[in-house]
Simulated assay, not measured.
Amino acid sequence: MKSKALLLAMLMSVSAAASAAPPTLRFCTGGEGGFYEKLGSAIGPVITKQTGSDLKVINTGGSVENAEKLKDGACDIAVIQNDAVISLPMPADIKVTDAHEEVVYWLHGKAGIDDFGKMEDDDVAKKYAFAAVSGSGALVTVRNWIKTDKDYEGARIVEFDSWYSAAEAVSQGYVSKAGVRIEIAGMLYIGRAGAISSDITEDFGKQILIGEVNDSSFEDSKDANNNPLYRHCAIPKESRSGLDTSNSFKDPKTYCLRAQIVFNNDYLASLQPDEAKKVRRAVDKGINSVVKVVR
């Protein structure tokens, strides 16, 4: 009997160990000082208080890198914009929670195009290309929009390695690649309202304008929770980070999307049901606290 009791105790111990929370919660965020980092640094301690784990906030390049790390199992939780969640390779059946809202800015130079939707015109599309930063969430969005609306099919995208170099091309209205001049219509930038990167605003604030995304083609898209992926919104003066708008636009129309907290399946599976519920609640609590403070 003693041996059976000992065996049962050992099995229970192994089972408990197998379902225990990982010793370290790896939270993939974004660049140093950015809002994704602030979000992870606020949510993480609320979770680890429930699980008894240590917290490791991992700085990354943002949504695209976070999706890659989730797929590779290098992070347990990540912040990712919602169109990247549904369009990038990710683990199956992921669980996501809505976080804060972000604005899709259409930025163009004085020689560019003031409305993203004008790129549907074949004559305009033949002349101009979109600028985009490699690995950015904005590149994910513009590719998703081109895929969603066949009128943009064949649109050209010129990729840059930083927001500064992309903004430089947008401000002057063109870039030279392999000796060929390419006219730049503008670029998308995604971020919290009024939080456009200083790489864009400091040196190019007088040359770059905020235009519109006045196209209804994206209204029916759904996110991972089957909610609207994009919603119509406007950019009031306080949300422009000092940039002017195109002459014809008072409060430019655009779309907004959500950043989402995405869970690695293996991490949730490692938790007991009650513990997993506490983690989900801790995420909601952390989101509410940090988004209210950093508006």
Rank of each mutant, 00 (worst) to 15 (best):
I94N: 02
R231E: 14
K292H: 09
V294N: 15
H108W: 00
A193T: 08
I43D: 12
S198A: 08
Y152H: 08
N247D: 11
I58N: 06
M10N: 02
N144H: 07
P45N: 12
L88N: 10
E219Q: 06
P89H: 07
D122R: 12
C28T: 01
D151W: 10
K118H: 11
L271A: 15
K71P: 00
K56D: 15
I235H: 05
L8Q: 06
G62M: 13
E120V: 09
S165G: 07
S136G: 05
K126F: 02
K49D: 15
Y128H: 07
K127L: 06
G52C: 03
V180M: 14
G109Y: 11
S165A: 12
P273I: 07
V85M: 09
D54K: 05
N66A: 02
G31M: 15
E159D: 10
K69D: 00
P228K: 06
N82W: 03
P45Q: 11
S87D: 08
M119C: 01
T29Y: 00
I86A: 02
K49S: 13
V213R: 02
A282F: 05
D93I: 00
R280I: 13
A185N: 03
Y189H: 15
D98W: 02
W163H: 12
R143W: 02
T60G: 09
K56A: 15
G34A: 04
V175K: 10
K222I: 01
L39T: 08
K95N: 07
E202F: 05
G73W: 01
D161G: 08
S171M: 01
V213L: 15
F35P: 10
